[in-house]
Every structure is written in structure tokens, then in C-alpha cells.
Amino acid sequence: MNTGPAAGPEPAGGTAPTGGSAPAVGAVPVDDRPPPAGPAANLIAAAVVVVLGVTAITGSLAFGAGSPSQPGPGTWPLIIGVVLVVLGLALATQARQPGQAERFTRGSLLVVAAVSSMVAYVACIATIGFEIPTFLLAFVWLKFLGKESWRLSILTSLGIVVAFYALFVGALDVTIPHLF
């Protein structure tokens, strides 16, 4: 039976006081997932599923549901819609159980920032070529999302642009809008 490290203090986030009873500092759980979401989040997810199912059903009825012997364009979406509604209701009944859903944390703001940066990237790339937006996106991700140092952020971002240029414009000769 595996019992983990045999000897020595746990090198992972634990503290090992050698004698004495002073409180350990900074014991961080080894793998710290965001806390599980409450039943509200599960219910919302279930509701979305049900709504999707209902949309599918109404849409398919509009196309013409057909019949078992004469399947029409709406037959299959109708089946899927019904299945979705059933699954959504089943999910709703399970909403109280601690599921696999995670709560949004402060880290989720990073995701929002990341997506915004990508949207901005898409907005610029057609007009000013890919070099500058690539540099900026890389820099933002490194410096602000990743909290890396100035030196690393700037140098790495430059390196990425150069590498991309060499690869996409140079070697692969892809038709990507570029300034230089």
C-alpha cells in the first residue's frame, strides 16, 4: 500500500516544526481548486439546458416534425430537444449535490482580462498587422496576468513576435496581415 513519502518533511507546502509547538506558517493545500459552486450555479446550468431544449423543440416544430415513418427536417432536432429538456430537469434535481462545478473566484477575473485582450487583438489585427497586437497581447499576458518581471515580459514578447514572423511570414508564407 502506498503511503506517500517515507522519510523527511513533505516538500510540498507543509510545515515541519522540529520540536516545540509554535504554529506552522503558510500551510497551503497541495492542489487548491476553486471551491465547488453552490446549488444556484447548478440550477442555472440546468435552466440553460432546459431553455436550449425548449428552443430546439419549438424550432423543430416550425420545420415540420414529421413522423416515424416520414422523418422530416424537424424530427431529429425534436428528439434532441426532448432529451435536453429531460436531462436539464434531471440536472436540476441534482443541483443540491456537490457537483463538479466550481465557483468563480478572483482568478476568474484573469479570464475576463484574457478574453478582453483577445477581443482587442482581433479588432486590431486586420488594420495594423499582427506584429504589434501580438507583442502587446504577449506583454499583457506576461506582465499583468502572469506577474512576470519587466525584463522577461518585454524580451519574451519581442521574441514571440520575431519567431512568429519568421515562422508564419517567412517559412510558412501564410497570408496574415503584417506591417513589416
Binding site: M118, V122, T134, T156, I160
Partner: peptide, 24 residues
């Protein structure tokens, strides 16, 4: 570090997506 790999992977993805149909 993941903080360095992430922007590289993202940019490969975004640029790659463009090359499919030359469409933003």
C-alpha cells in the same frame, strides 16, 4: 512557467485560426 507558455499557446491558436480561411 505556465505564465510564459500560455501566451505562446494562445497566440499560436489565434494566428492559426486566422489562417484557416484568412478571416478575422
Amino acid at each position: 512557467r505556465a505564465t510564459v507558455l500560455a501566451p505562446i499557446t494562445v497566440l499560436i491558436t489565434l494566428v492559426g485560426a486566422y489562417t484557416v480561411n484568412n478571416s478575422v
